[in-house]
Nucleic acid binder design. Structure first.
Lengths: 138, 138
DNA sequence: TCTTTACTTGCGATTTATTCGCATTTGCAT
DNA sequence: ATGCAAATGCGAATAAATCGCAAGTAAAGA
């Protein structure tokens, strides 16, 4: 049972939305829309990709999910908003996505050249190679 | 006159490539393919968008340009690789892109949860509102 | 429980960024 | 100058994401 109450968010609690939510709760890294569709199908629920996109859009608006496009990728990924500050490292070889322990921004106040800028958030991605792929590279 | 010698990079020195290079040299922030086409056209050079993409692809391969997709955007931007460590701040309202003075990563060694990970690079984006847009928001 | 209605989804067409295919053209080494 | 591999012109093809509309459904009220 999900901790997120959709009706409380002012949106209807449909079978499709519950299913997408379930998939996102079970995912252990950000996934794209097509992957969500696959996992939804595996649960025996039939849905159209446009519905998936519409659900993801409204979830993003409501702050339930976080949408992101990784460096060098063409499609967006989605993950549940855990309301905790998280960054990822992505393997350039196998594309695996790993969570980073610490955030360097906590003790850092950046300045923008010659301009005032009001920072509301930031995105940090590390890239490189995971242990396995690094060994293969030699 | 450009400092970059295309023949030295093993690729032919065509009118089109020189023109794209010129546009990138004159740009003061990352721009997308269509914007490059516009600026090329303004210089009186006719080119197809597919040619722009092909040139950008080979420039990226050669390390002459850096391709990036900003948070929440659908299209990629391109900028000349200045071979210096740069990060940007992007205004969520007017989409202006500003350069950040410092890099917090310099004094930071991140660790990846339960895994070894060999970091070769990173990407950091700040987002928020520039002075002008912030005033409009009130 | 039954209606009503506004919100959602099914379904497919459309848009937009980007890539591909192929004939023609053009750098550039000889 | 000549020849050939590489690059471009041109347009068709892909793929991610969005849109439009009719039909279906959640949920608030009678």
């Amino acid at each position: 049972m999900s901790k997120i109450n959709l009706s409380q968010q002012g949106i209807k609690n449909t079978k499709q939305r519950k299913c997408v939510l379930e998939v996102l709760e079970e995912a252990n890294s950000p996934i794209d829309a097509m992957e969500i569709l696959n996992r939804v199908n595996e649960k025996g629920v039939k849905m159209w990709i446009s519905t998936i996109y519409r659900i993801l859009e409204i979830f993003t608006e409501k702050g339930i999910v976080i949408k992101n496009t990784f460096f060098g990728e063409e499609k967006a990924t989605y993950e549940l908003n855990k309301h905790k500050h998280t960054h990822y490292a992505r393997c350039l070889s196998c594309k695996k996505i790993l969570e980073i322990d610490l955030c360097p921004m906590e003790s850092f106040i950046p300045t923008v050249k010659d301009e005032k800028f009001y920072i509301t958030g930031h995105r940090l991605e590390m890239y490189g190679y995971c242990d396995k792929c690094n060994k293969k590279r030699g």
